[in-house]
Write a protein that binds this DNA or RNA. Structure first.
Lengths: 182, 182
DNA sequence: ACTTACATGTAAGCGGTTACATGATTTG
DNA sequence: CAAATCATGTAACCGCTTACATGTAAGT
């Protein structure tokens, strides 16, 4: 099975929202896709270029008053087709993260238990923070974008983040308790 | 902040278990670390070589009867020190996965709702499978390795996998229900 | 005077996978 | 007779980040 470059489709998909420039795409990713898809400029601009070369998008350069020139990208009919066929395609692999905390815990026999607990506490703190940002985004969507056609799906991805984050926080609490009992 | 190559430490850590060869390390990773750390041979062998060059491990070639030659690696005192200092070091970033399902859902406005539901159902099936493998490994540890010095920490990493997997399955159920109601 | 927002792009490098290459022995 | 297990290694390639390079205008 040939590997698919999903990032290409992420950018193609963002062109179906109000995002028109590389800069706007980056902003959207940092705000709304960051918990399941991150991309840097170093990938966005070359990908946009490639999209045009493949006929999936068009560019038009516009000069702005007071702001730098920008390139506006628009998805083509062919691009829309390609996006839809990708959406239709089955998902083959479930994601695997590299988890530094679990790696350290795996070898924690070589470490003072207190240090392990400290690592977990810090991890918990970070996820509690993350949970709060999810809630914040959720409130923002509900308040200002609830009738946007994408809103329901956005809330679904946020719910995923909230649920997994909650379960991680619960694991932190249970594990700290267990280790402290020793 | 300079980036750390954690994979190096994963291998160094595995040398403190009974793993002595690149082959054995690969097996251990595939069995026990796979849900939070994956490595291929293409990285294991060069890393082992580098470890020796840095004085963190030693090699000795042994000829075996009936089996191919192998190289046995042993961690050095310096390697042990380096491992411990890495374990002590604070964890800076929490992991971020690239999630193809969430990416597709994010753009699901362009897709028939039935197809989205189908993707989620398949995702759920995969995580239910994954949950079962976690339970299997847990039972194996409890049955045969429960007094190993690492056992408790191994069970902790498995609990992490079980809890997050459960929350994903719950999200799948809730999301399917919500989408089917429309 | 400084920072932030807007805006685009490239080159070097890193971590990693995949495919390839080789080969003996055991098990079904 | 085929497949699996044991065992080591490399080269090509890929996706991606980081650092660098450049510049205007508005707000603090």
């Amino acid at each position: 099975m040939a590997k698919v470059n999903h990032t290409k489709f992420a950018i193609l998909g963002l062109l179906t929202t109000e995002c028109r420039t590389g800069y706007a795409i980056k902003q959207m990713i940092d705000q709304s896709l960051t918990h399941f898809w991150k991309i840097s400029y170093g990938q966005i601009y070359p990908t946009l270029k490639a999209l045009v070369e493949e006929g999936l998008a068009t560019v038009s350069e516009t000069t702005q008053q007071g702001k730098p020139d920008k390139k506006e990208y628009h998805i083509t009919a062919k691009g829309d087709e390609v996006l839809k066929s990708w959406l239709h395609q089955e998902i083959t692999d479930i994601p695997t993260e590299k988890n530094e905390l679990l790696l350290k815990l795996f070898f924690s026999r070589h470490q003072l238990p207190d240090k392990a607990i400290q690592h977990i506490k810090e991890y918990q703190r970070k996820y509690e923070e993350q949970y709060e940002t999810y809630v914040g985004i959720e409130e923002m969507i509900n308040a200002t974008l609830s009738h946007a056609p994408d809103a329901n799906f956005w809330l679904i991805t946020l719910d995923y983040g909230k649920r997994t984050t909650t379960s991680i926080i619960e694991w932190c609490k249970a594990t700290i308790e267990q280790l402290e009992a020793k």
